Simulated scan of single mutants.
Amino acid sequence: MRMGAGDEEAGAGLWNYNSSSKRVCVMDASGRLGSALVHRLLHRGYSVHAALHNHHEVESYKRQYWSDHENNNSKLRVLDSDPLDYQSIMEALKGCCALFYSFELPSDHPTYDEVMGELEVRAAHNVLEACAQTDTIDKVVFTSSATAVLWRDNNNQHDALPSESDVDERNWSDINFCKKFKLWHGLSKTVAEKTAWALAMDRGVNMVSINGGLLMCPDLSIKDPYLLGAAEMFKDGVFVTVDLKFLVEAHICVFEDISSYGRYLCFNHIINCNNDVVNLATKMSQSSSPHAMEDNGVYQQRISNDKLSKLMLDYDSGIQVE
Rank of each mutant, 00 (worst) to 15 (best):
E8C: 06
A12E: 11
L14E: 15
Y17G: 03
S20I: 08
D28L: 06
A29W: 02
G31F: 06
L33S: 08
S35I: 03
L37Q: 12
H39I: 02
R40L: 09
L41F: 10
L42T: 10
L42P: 13
Y46K: 04
S47D: 13
A50Y: 00
V58H: 02
S60Y: 08
Y61C: 06
Y61G: 01
Y65L: 14
W66D: 05
E70M: 13
N71R: 13
R77N: 10
V78R: 03
L79V: 07
D80K: 07
D82E: 11
P83E: 10
L84C: 10
Q87T: 04
S88Y: 08
A92Y: 03
K94V: 00
L99I: 12
F100W: 01
D113Q: 05
D113R: 02
E114A: 09
R122D: 02
R122Q: 09
N126M: 04
N126F: 04
L128Q: 02
E129Q: 09
A132F: 05
Q133L: 06
Q133Y: 04
D138M: 11
V141F: 03
T143A: 14
T143C: 14
S144G: 05
S145E: 14
A148Q: 04
V149A: 06
R152C: 04
R152H: 08
L161D: 00
L161Q: 08
S163W: 12
E164D: 13
D168H: 03
E169G: 04
E169I: 00
N171H: 15
D174H: 14
D174E: 10
I175A: 06
I175H: 08
C178S: 05
K179E: 13
K180M: 04
K182D: 12
H185Y: 15
H185V: 09
G186S: 07
E193H: 05
K194W: 01
A200D: 04
A200I: 03
R203T: 05
V205S: 01
M207G: 00
D224N: 10
P225A: 07
P225H: 06
L227M: 09
G229P: 02
A231E: 03
M233F: 01
F234C: 00
D236H: 14
V238H: 01
V240R: 05
T241I: 07
L247K: 09
E249M: 11
S259P: 00
Y264V: 02
H269I: 02
I271N: 08
L280V: 05
L280S: 03
M284T: 10
S287Y: 08
E294I: 11
I303W: 10
S304E: 09
S309K: 15
D314H: 15
D316Q: 15
Q320R: 14
Q320F: 11
Q320I: 12
